[in-house]
Design a binder for these strands. Structure first.
Lengths: 228, 228
DNA sequence: TATTTTTAAATAGTAATACTATCATTGTAA
DNA sequence: TTACAATGATAGTATTACTATTTAAAAATA
């Protein structure tokens, strides 16, 4: 038995569904490789086209522009992560253990997932760490948001917020804490690797350190038995 | 008596010091206005040149490219903020009250500072909120960091970390907590205004909400008297 | 089977961007 | 007076981010 994972993407993200054609899947596969290699600003449709043996116009038939393509692959990542979270927390009763598991998933280096053929999740994780924020840090966030382009991210945030609330129904900031965890899982990792003095982890590239920090942050917030 | 605040910027940030000439000051003044208006991706030296009645080449004499200009104004902001933090915490004994003051400064809407002539701090604050991360989220972070372009940000982070450590010398993550506060002061505000479901603050644009969240986060982390 | 219609690929073209280079002019310091 | 730094004006280039047109292949219909 062979299972493959299909993620249904928001239709506003593309002009022609890239999952449905060979060329489309090539675009997804190699855009991830290329963005990972050059960074988003130096990434162009022309370079991508050359790499996969098609033309610029060919890619424009699938994606309106490179920003939409970024939002597509980043959204794909969040959807995949939500699925992963679901699978790994499904059989866990305790919301605390669920939360720990989630923090671990968020902050840990990813391995390529064999269930998906045309996406390298390890590269994609690194892209999201570096370029993810650029998906929404634009002048057109509001319109993009109206088109529900960020739904996967918001859904994941909501899922985690619900578990936070399970841990402590009286905690006042479940969503903000959730988005803080998600962002910081990426940023602290990025800082550790590139601007280590913004962290306490030196330059040792140890995911465990970030996990320790996030667990401390979250559980201290959720269970503050007394205060000064 | 009239005081003006001069911030000495890293010389690697510019080709010709913009503070020293009329044209240079015009560039700083109007780049802030223009980036605020169009967003960083649509901002070009040509548009800026037209606005201040010079030519593209004129601006290239001051800044190597628009990314350097962004790093310049963002760094200026962090230096200014560090100065502001210094002034407002100087006479405070208690590190806890210092921290609260800092959180308030970080998360509150800024008024234009009359001490500086050619910078509108209110606009700059909004720019940093939206574009600040783009200063370091690039392929060339490492080289930029070697040139010490991010020193003001790192210094501010260090200053706050020191106060955190004063509050609780045993706390293990002063720097990471510090960078978390700084980033989240901006991000939670950005989310509140643009993607409110990532926060618990609705769409009410009330800085106080973000301050409440951050204070809760920080002090819970620093004073966790007991834990599950 | 021939013909039409749809779909996709290839080619070409454009306006704007991100620069670089050159040379003339003006104002200031030696 | 001269020199020299700063600006201004003009031009030019490679690349980017697209659009439009034409051409060819595939699918549907007569």
């Amino acid at each position: 038995m062979e299972l493959t994972l299909q993620i249904r993407m928001n239709e506003k993200l593309f002009l022609r569904n890239p999952e449905e054609t060979e060329l489309g899947r090539e675009i997804l596969l190699h855009s991830i490789v290329l963005i990972h290699k050059t960074g988003f600003e130096l990434f162009t449709f022309k370079k991508l086209a050359e790499k996969i043996g098609t033309t610029e116009a060919g890619i424009y038939r699938y994606f309106e522009n490179k920003h939409r393509l970024l939002v597509y692959i980043v959204s794909w990542y969040w959807s995949w992560l939500e699925y992963k979270v679901m699978v790994h927390t499904n059989n866990i009763k305790s919301p605390e253990i669920k939360l720990k598991k989630i923090i671990q998933i968020l902050a840990t280096e990813v391995k390529d997932d064999v269930q998906t053929t045309h996406v390298d999740e390890r590269l994609l994780h690194e892209i999201v760490r570096m370029e993810g924020a650029k998906a929404y840090l634009t002048r057109h966030v509001t319109e993009d948001n109206k088109q529900r382009l960020f739904k996967p991210y918001k859904d994941l945030c909501g899922t985690i917020a619900a578990i936070i609330q399970e841990c402590n129904p009286k905690y006042k900031y479940p969503r903000s804490l959730s988005s803080t965890i998600i962002e910081m899982a990426h940023y602290q990792n990025f800082f550790m690797r590139n601007l280590p003095s913004l962290t306490d982890f030196g330059n040792i590239k140890d995911d465990g350190k970030v996990i320790g920090f996030l667990e401390n942050l979250v559980f201290a917030s959720l269970y503050p038995l007394k205060r000064k």
